Simulated scan of single mutants.
Amino acid sequence: MTVKSRIEDRLSEALSPERLEVVNESHLHAGHQPDFSGAGETHMRVRIVSAAFSGMGRVARHRVVNELLKDEFNAGLHALAIEAAAPGEPGAR
């Protein structure tokens, strides 16, 4: 199972999102460090819209997502960009 699919499964299970997109952006970071070619699944972007985020601020939403994905960070995920919104908010496209 890929990192992307594990992230999708974990967030879907925990947050029942109405929209979820997980994008591997590792290739965009090639060359940022001498030994990093951009291969693999080390840099991911999550775009998620979930009613679970209603009433939460941006930092709280990020904490929820980061906590849910802590095993992925422990296994080698290096960076995660998070775009989290509640239904009906700007960015809930």
Rank of each mutant, 00 (worst) to 15 (best):
S37I: 02
R93V: 08
R10D: 15
E72G: 03
H43W: 05
K4C: 07
H43L: 08
E83A: 06
V64L: 12
H62V: 08
L68I: 08
N24D: 15
R19Y: 15
L80D: 07
R63W: 10
E18R: 12
D71H: 05
E89I: 01
H62P: 09
H32R: 05
S50T: 11
H29L: 09
P87C: 02
H32N: 12
A60N: 08
E72I: 04
L80M: 03
K70G: 02
P90N: 03
I48E: 01
R47M: 03
A51K: 10
L11Y: 08
R61H: 09
A51T: 08
L80P: 06
N66Y: 08
R63G: 12
H29M: 11
G40Y: 05
G38R: 06
V22Q: 13
E83K: 06
A52F: 03
A51Q: 12
A86Y: 02
S12P: 08
K70R: 10
A14H: 12
L28I: 09
F36N: 11
H32A: 05
G88E: 00
M44Y: 03
S26R: 13
P34T: 04
N66W: 05
R19P: 10
Q33E: 12
E25I: 01
A52T: 07
E8F: 02
G57I: 03
L69E: 12
G40L: 06
A30V: 07
R61Q: 13
E25K: 13
E21F: 03
Q33N: 09
H32S: 10
V3R: 11
A51G: 12
L80Y: 04
A39I: 01
N66S: 10
V59K: 02
T42K: 11
